[in-house]
Design a protein around this nucleic acid. Structure first.
Length: 898
RNA sequence: GCUCGAAUGGCGAAAUUGGCAGACGCGCCAGACUUAGGAUCUGGUACCGAAAGGUGUGUGGGUUCAAGUCCCUCUUCGAGCACCA
């Protein structure tokens, strides 16, 4: 605690109001059916990404997003809306478990302690959460429903006929296990020996674990998967209607990685098998001069010729021992080996060699490619390295500047350049020893010759389908979601195994709680720690429990739904609550970001009205949650297809050195210390004043002092010190008519703050409130009406200060009844914004040469006349001929003279 | 390498839809009140110049009466993806 005297007694009243708000449940949201539910009030669901309660406590980055949503929540309450603004804990997960292993304490204990600490910190910032709805993913009453949703996935499949999830009972095929949305797979997975668990593709970055940065191996293990790939098209298509940043939509589209192309079947020479390849450039099939299979491709064994056996085996072994990291980052040099086999190019019957190489990935497409070195950089590099044939089949436009240079003066291409002229006289060129991966026109391709790339693709696909050797297809980068982890601190699966097959538990058996265990360390093998709980594992004489647990993402996939109805014992969310909070019945357009054209009339998909969080969840949490939501929607449990209507990413707060905050740099700002020194209101206000919410911005301690001084100035508008140094209501306040200027600035402030809050431009809203405050600083007497209009505007930003002033003002003046947090948002009157005079900038040839003040009602002609007569322009216009005069009403006059 | 995003005073940033660049805050300078100021209040503060005036929104060009804003070029920084056929 600093020794300097506080500018206003925040440390006295901030905790007092926090306590008051909590104890009176001032921010409780009511559900339909509650006795005090207000019919006709609009709903507003504003959500934070709930935190993982780490031992480090709250970070200033949390405070930024949470303040933004709190402002919106408080603003909408003042508008009279029924506001759902909840908070909870994403408390399962690796860090808690690892900490527990290190300290020997049960993760439940440490998690509880961290949660309590987080809650205290959040309350010390005055966030207006409805604490009666607090949830934790580790609460059995919560994960009962996480497990229930897993069973929904397990018991559902996507019917290709309807493209919707349906109960598995509608599946009429032989093997329901092959279509379930939750299924078991033995495919190679990302195993992290250090963490002792498998990880999802999304959790692996550059061949290392996202958590901890440990190396990842690929090894086949029996794992639970969720069939998110069944939703790829809808996950892409439904992004369209969402009010999300374009960059996040793009990130999701890229992650899903849809690519259109064709599958082409190549017969093998002398072997009764064939190889399917995927290509996005079927138009280049005539230029396919060899095939490449991934080393793990199932056909590799059977097609390798005797003399190549040894080389192939050696190469395969070398690849399998490489980590993902080595295979990608370090492997700039292409490697591979010839199998001895030849394939037949279906389009021209040519015999082309079949190679294996690790630049072809086993998990994408068919795990095999047709190599077109003339039109693909990677194939070109490979062909160069191994002396394979390059045949150009796409020509580029000669007029592309770079090639024109090389190609000559004479107008005719120099060999090795060749040229092709189309009917429209355009000239197209190619050569066989270069790589050109762009689009152009087909050459050396018989029936495709002369066609632009796009048309050539379509014609080739048609040809392939006609000949029965291929078809148009779409491939995705998105893989099914690896959903099991070999950990203790997570939701157990509601599954038992009997005679080698799995079966779901009934709903009545939920929740399946993790066993009490002393020793929950990883086993050091692929065997999950739950295997050590012998009693728990044994479900019956013949059945045993699934030993894996769910990943941390499970709980956060649906928590926003539980907030709507957190105490419901019969359903994961009550029907009525879901209709109300997740429906599209919110404030129509009132809170949508300004869109070009200003069209707010489009029907919204509904869901959470505003969701604020960091970009780091752009493809993980946000994609998973959308997927679960769609499944539940298909199965009739929800009424909207998307969970989050409007999403905003807050930017990162950097240290005062402009670097990312980190303990090692020593530039971490602790919110508790800022609160102790300057108060919660100052911290909130400063983080909003730093700059646009979406931008990253560096911390500045003197900046905090700036807003702190501003709040102190507001305080002194109403309060003064008496002889003893106690704060009392200022004598300068009086029931007194506002001057025209005061009234104008107040109403302008109401207008600007209202608009700025709705477009999340908090920094400029605060600027305007500072301007307004400065106007009143020296006004004596100060009209009390100013406080009535101004304080509600400030209250979402600095709620403690306003609440305190409000209560002091109520002792002497009318209009300050009840809590400021429960008062009403003021409205502005456009009539009061009108000014009687307006200042024009006078320009000569676009340069400002003077100013002119005229009555607002002055017409164009009279402004023009006054401008020409203005003395300040005389010297500029002297000896010049006036060509043109432009008058922009209310702004400027530009005289064009030569 | 590819895809996005950004670039404005000493600093964080403003700037409706092409119409007076730098609002607001920090810092700095000066003044007032004070025993005192790291409190508060007032004024000043883009740059060059004594002034008149000139120059300024990463670079170079273009459109326009008028460009931070629109078009093209390049540079730098940040983020994401990264052999995805």
């Amino acid at each position: 605690m600093s020794l300097t005297r506080k500018h206003y007694p925040f440390s006295e009243f901030e905790p007092r109001w926090q306590q008051h708000w909590v104890s009176t449940q001032a921010f409780r949201a009511t559900n339909p059916g509650d006795p005090d539910f207000r019919l006709g009030a609009k709903k507003y669901f504003v959500l934070d990404m709930f935190p993982y309660p780490s031992g480090d406590g709250l970070h200033v980055g949390h405070v930024e997003g949470y303040t933004a949503t709190d402002i919106l929540a408080r603003y909408h309450r003042l508008l009279g809306d029924n506001v759902l603004h909840p908070m909870g804990w994403d408390a399962f997960g690796l860090p808690a478990e690892q900490y527990a292993i290190k300290t020997g304490q049960h993760p439940r204990i440490t998690t509880q302690r961290n949660v309590d600490n987080f809650r205290t910190q959040l309350q010390s910032l005055g966030f207006s959460y409805d604490w009666s709805r607090e949830i934790s993913t580790t609460d059995p009453e919560y994960f009962r429903w996480t497990q229930w949703i897993f069973l929904q996935l397990y018991n559902a499949w996507v019917n290709p006929a309807t493209n919707k999830a349906e109960p598995i009972s509608s599946y009429t095929g032989m093997d329901p296990d092959s279509v379930r949305l939750a299924f078991v797979s033995d495919k190679p997975v990302n195993w992290c020996p250090e963490l002792g668990t498998v990880l999802a593709n999304e959790e692996v970055i550059d061949g290392k674990s996202e958590v901890g940065g440990f190396p990842i191996e690929r090894r086949p293990m029996r794992q639970w998967m969720l069939r998110i790939t069944a939703y790829t098209e809808r996950l892409i298509a439904d992004l369209e209607g969402l009010d999300w940043p374009e960059s996040i939509k793009l990130l999701q589209r890229n992650w899903i990685g849809r690519s259109e192309g064709a599958e082409v079947r190549f017969a093998l020479d002398g072997i009764p098998e064939d190889i399917s390849v995927f290509t996005t450039r079927p138009d280049t099939l005539f230029g396919a001069t060899y095939l490449v299979l991934a080393p793990e491709h199932p056909l590799v064994e059977s097609l390798t010729s005797a003399p190549q056996q040894e080389g192939v085996a050696t190469y395969k072994k070398a690849c399998s021992s490489k980590s993902d990291l080595e295979r990608t980052d370090l492997a700039k040099e292409k490697t591979g080996v010839f199998t001895g086999a030849y394939a037949i190019n279906p389009v021209n019957g040519e015999k082309i060699p079949v190679w294996i190489a690790d630049y072809v990935l086993t998990g994408y497409g068919t795990g095999a490619i047709m190599a077109v070195p003339a039109h693909d950089e990677r194939d070109y590099d490979f062909a160069k390295a191994f002396g394979l044939q390059v045949t150009a089949v796409v020509a580029q436009r000669i007029s592309d500047a770079k090639i024109t240079m090389e190609i000559v003066v004479s107008g005719k291409p120099n060999p090795p350049w060749r040229a092709h002229q189309l009917n429209d006289e355009s000239v197209w060129v190619w050569r066989h020893d270069r790589c050109f991966s762009g689009e152009g026109v087909a050459v050396n391709s018989e029936f495709l010759d002369g066609l632009p790339t796009l048309e050539a693709k379509l014609k080739m696909i048609a040809w392939l389908e006609e000949q029965g050797v291929g078809k148009g297809t779409i491939t995705y980068k998105l893989r099914d979601w690896l959903f099991s982890r070999q950990r203790y601190w997570g939701e157990p699966f509601p599954i038992v195994w009997e005679n080698g097959s799995h079966r779901p538990l009934s709903h009545e058996e939920l929740p399946v709680e993790p066993p009490e265990m002393e020793d929950f360390k990883p086993t050091g093998t692929a065997e999950p720690p739950l295997s050590k709980a012998k009693e728990w594992v044994r479900y019956s004489e013949t059945a045993s429990r699934e030993l894996n647990t769910m990943p941390q993402w499970a709980g956060s996939c649906w928590y926003y739904l539980r907030f709507c109805d957190p105490k419901n014992h019969d359903r994961f969310i009550g029907t009525e609550a879901e209709h109300y909070w997740m429906g599209s019945t919110g404030r129509p357009g009132g809170d949508t970001k300004k869109t070009p054209g200003g069209d707010h009339s489009h029907k919204t998909p509904g869901g959470v009205d505003l969701y604020v969080g960091g970009t780091e969840h752009a493809v993980l949490h946000l994609l998973y949650a959308r997927f679960w939501h769609k499944v539940l929607f298909d199965l009739g449990h929800l009424t909207t297809p998307e969970p989050f209507q409007r999403l905003v990413n807050q930017g990162m707060i950097l240290g005062d050195d402009g670097q990312k905050m980190s303990k090692s740099r020593g530039n971490v700002v602790n919110p508790d210390e800022v609160v102790a020194e300057y108060g919660a209101d100052s911290l909130r206000l400063y983080e909003m004043f730093m700059g646009p919410l979406e931008h990253g911005k560096p911390w500045s301690t003197t900046g905090v002092e700036g807003v702190y001084r501003f709040l102190a100035r507001v305080w002194r508008l109403a309060m003064a010190e008496d002889q003893e140094g106690n704060w009392i209501l200022s004598d300068d306040l009086a029931e007194q008519k506002l001057t025209t200027a005061q009234r104008r600035i107040l109403h302008a402030t109401i207008k600007k703050v209202t608009h700025d809050i709705e477009s999340l431009a908090f920094n400029t809203a605060i600027s305007q409130m500072m301007i307004c405050t400065n106007e009143f600083t020296n006004a004596k007497p100060r009209p009390i009406e100013a406080m009535r209009l101004f304080l509600p505007l400030l209250s979402p930003f600095a709620p403690h200060l306003v609440e305190e002033l409000w209560s002091h003002l109520a002792t002497k003046f009318a209009g300050f009844e009840g809590l400021a947090s429960q008062s009403a948002w003021p409205s502005w009157n456009e009539d009061y914004l009108v000014v009687s005079e307006v200042s024009y900038a006078l320009q000569v040839n676009g340069k400002v040469r003077g100013h002119l003040t005229v009555p607002i009602a002055a017409g164009k002609e009279s402004v023009e006349k006054a401008a020409l007569a203005d003395a300040s322009l005389a010297s500029q216009l002297e000896g010049k001929v006036i060509k043109k005069i432009i008058v922009v009403p209310g702004r400027l006059v530009n005289i064009v003279a030569v």
